[in-house]
Amino acid sequence: MGEGCASAAWCAVLWAAHARFAALLPEEGQKEIWGESPDARIAAALMPPSGSASRVPGGWVLEGEWDLASGVGHAHWVLLAARDTDGPDRPTRAFAVPRSLVTVRDTWNATGLRATGSDTVLLGATVVPDGRSVPLAALLAGGGTDGLPRCHAAPAQLAGGLMFCAPAVGAARRALAVWTRWARTATHGDVRPLDRPSARERLARSAVEIEAAELMLRTAAERADTEVITEGLTAANRRDAAVAADWLATAVDRLFRTGGSHLRDREGELYRNWSDVLTVASHGALSLEPAAEAFARSLVVGGADDA
């Protein structure tokens, strides 16, 4: 899907991820969301938490404004994270709200992923029943999930970065195909860009970086599906997703800078793929610094610092 449209792939990935989150709601909340159809689409604005929540009998009064709710225009439900304004340590909770109750403000104007509709949502004071709320920490940790399948019980960061990278892999593949088609086409004087040694070198470097990133992500996905879930495993997957995103951005940027002026046209396919990959790579979940910190910490905690 990412090869055809990274924005569509981005929304599909997030709808899948948010359904995993919603599976951690109390049973009554799950019945509300999926009682009529198993295909309910769920948008979310969880990080950073915004708005406010106040305890009332049987539920919470939720209100506020949340940014970057990707795919909300085609969603049936929205997961929103807000702090408990009455709690002594202001714990954060996630709330499921029908899409019909929120107002969507058109604020998404990024360079890439322009069709994701990652807009701002606003909610006036609304009572959300307890059955549609869960502590955000439990949702992200996948804790307290006895009996649930692994895909629902896993911590969010085990596969979150891999899912974010998937649209970028597809867009990078397509960028490589578009650039290669251009480089193989003869221009003035019957000369092909691919006849130049510098162009062949750039092609080789970008192709191998894209393939290596995909291989690394596939390996990390296999670990997420099969290996014992530990802090070290989660940290290694975060590390690999961040590095893969950097490789994909580097590879596509190299192709974009090497292409001819017409190939870099703002309305062209390569420009769209380039801007999409770089926008994905800039997502906070794919930042290398916190991923590297978590990986180093897992080695110390795991007793592997005596190598």
Results as ranks from 00 to 15, higher is better:
218 R>V: 04
218 R>Q: 07
218 R>I: 04
219 T>G: 07
219 T>L: 05
219 T>N: 09
219 T>F: 06
220 A>D: 06
220 A>Y: 06
220 A>N: 10
221 A>M: 09
221 A>Q: 14
222 E>G: 13
222 E>H: 05
222 E>N: 12
222 E>L: 11
223 R>V: 06
224 A>W: 02
224 A>Q: 05
224 A>C: 08
224 A>P: 09
225 D>N: 10
226 T>R: 08
226 T>N: 12
227 E>D: 11
228 V>K: 13
228 V>N: 03
228 V>M: 04
229 I>S: 00
229 I>Y: 07
230 T>Y: 01
230 T>N: 04
230 T>C: 13
231 E>R: 05
231 E>P: 07
231 E>G: 14
231 E>N: 00
232 G>M: 00
232 G>E: 14
233 L>K: 02
234 T>D: 01
234 T>N: 08
235 A>Y: 00
235 A>W: 00
235 A>V: 01
236 A>P: 03
236 A>Q: 03
236 A>E: 14
236 A>Y: 00
237 N>F: 04
238 R>W: 02
238 R>E: 14
238 R>N: 02
238 R>I: 05
238 R>H: 02
239 R>L: 14
239 R>T: 03
239 R>C: 05
239 R>W: 05
239 R>V: 01
241 A>K: 10
241 A>G: 13
242 A>K: 11
242 A>F: 05
242 A>E: 03
243 V>G: 02
243 V>F: 09
244 A>H: 12
244 A>P: 07
244 A>L: 05
244 A>T: 06
244 A>W: 15
244 A>K: 07
245 A>Y: 12
245 A>T: 07
245 A>D: 12
245 A>E: 13
245 A>H: 08
246 D>K: 10
246 D>T: 09
247 W>V: 02
247 W>I: 01
247 W>E: 04
247 W>Y: 03
248 L>M: 12
248 L>E: 07
248 L>Y: 05
248 L>D: 06
249 A>P: 12
249 A>V: 06
249 A>N: 03
250 T>F: 14
250 T>K: 07
250 T>G: 13
250 T>H: 15
250 T>W: 13
250 T>M: 10
251 A>W: 04
251 A>T: 13
251 A>Q: 09
252 V>L: 03
252 V>T: 11
252 V>W: 04
252 V>S: 01
252 V>C: 05
253 D>V: 03
253 D>G: 15
253 D>N: 12
254 R>S: 09
255 L>Y: 10
255 L>S: 06
255 L>N: 09
255 L>R: 11
255 L>W: 04
256 F>A: 02
256 F>G: 09
256 F>Q: 03
256 F>L: 01
256 F>W: 15
256 F>P: 07
257 R>W: 08
257 R>L: 14
258 T>Y: 01
258 T>M: 09
259 G>S: 15
259 G>N: 06
260 G>N: 10
261 S>R: 15
261 S>P: 11
261 S>N: 08
261 S>V: 15
262 H>C: 05
262 H>F: 08
262 H>V: 09
263 L>V: 10
263 L>K: 07
